[in-house]
């Protein structure tokens, strides 16, 4: 391969190699017992994994992560389809882009900032509850009750990320041959029927992309639970990533890297097939 060609990829390759190094480093340290209690590192095989996996916090946080992702994927897809449907049937392109921007804008704001605002909105006296009480609905405990903490987190995530799903479904809808839709309209089909029978069945691609992205974004959510709980220690809001950070703050490094490696593996299982599908479909035509 010619020199001029190789130059193109050198920066990308170098930084990708650094990332690979980081991932491997994580894995290596996870096989040791390095922590505050063991400043001298020695290899212990899978022992760290066994001890970490058995802790309550591990299963708790992994469960939370999976719960968060599952909720976001399920609700994000459903709401995404609905919103995309609402947007699709608008006649004005301008209105469509305005409303689309409204549901996507949360992505333009830092999640840390979003968390701050929602922290206030969740205040049971002067937050959203003030309005709910005014309408006559009961005061919802949001972050002040352990059973509603996590659902509140899910709510904010849905607010932040549903826009992505809606975007992909909308893009998918707009790729469907318009003449088919027009024929259905002429046949008297209602908007719901068109959505249900024509648009959704042809949206398998959008479903795949939306699900993959929702899962990946939800899995890496950090600042939201971190700020909503004021730190990494609240186990009711602890996701896998937050738990890993907690282990780092208490200097249990090998356990932290063990959790980090587990997180990386779970994410890779989704990312790598997804990447290979992309490369086969879009790049190697």
């Amino acid at each position: 391969m010619k020199k001029g060609t190789i130059i193109l990829v050198i920066p990308t390759a170098i930084f990708s190699a650094v990332l690979l190094y980081l991932v491997i480093w994580n894995a290596v340290i996870s096989f040791t017992n390095w922590s505050l209690l063991n400043p001298k590192i020695s290899f212990v095989g899978l022992q760290t994994y066994f001890s970490v996996v058995r802790t309550f916090q591990f299963s708790n946080s992994i469960l939370h992560s999976l719960e968060l992702s599952a909720s976001l994927v399920a609700i994000g897809n459903i709401l995404g389809i609905l919103f995309a449907g609402l947007l699709y049937f608008l006649s004005s392109n301008k209105a469509r882009s305005v409303f689309l921007s409204i549901i996507i804008y949360p992505l333009a704001i830092s999640m840390a900032v979003n968390a701050l605002i929602w922290l206030w909105l969740f205040n049971i006296n002067i937050g959203i509850d003030w309005l709910l009480v005014r309408i006559g609905l009961p005061q919802f405990p949001w972050l002040s009750s352990t059973s509603t903490m996590f659902p509140s987190l899910i709510l904010v995530s849905i607010w932040a990320y549903t826009g992505i799903a809606a975007l992909f479904y909308l893009a998918g809808f707009m790729n469907i041959d318009k003449s088919v839709i027009e024929a259905a309209r002429l046949d008297g089909a209602s908007a719901f029927k068109i959505l249900y029978k024509l648009l959704i069945p042809n949206s398998f691609n959008s479903f795949i992309i939306a699900t993959a992205l929702l899962f990946l974004f939800s899995f890496r959510i950090f600042s939201l639970p971190y700020i909503l709980s004021g730190g990494p220690t609240n186990i009711f809001l602890q996701t896998a990533v937050v738990y890993m950070y907690y282990l780092f703050t208490v200097e249990f490094f090998s356990q932290a890297t063990a959790v980090a490696t587990i997180i990386t593996v779970i994410a890779s299982v989704i990312i790598i097939p997804y990447a290979l599908i992309i490369i086969r479909r879009w790049i190697r035509k």
């Binding site: 990332l19 980081l22 980090a260 994410a267 890779s268 990447a275």
Partner: peptide
């Protein structure tokens, strides 16, 4: 090569980067 490299860049894009916390700080 293109499969491997492309998977790497996809990983770098979507990975929860918090997972690289410790080696990253150390580096």
């Amino acid at each position: 090569i293109s499969d491997v490299l492309f998977s790497l860049i996809a990983l770098a894009t979507f990975i929860p980067y918090q997972a690289t916390l410790i080696p990253l700080t150390r580096l």
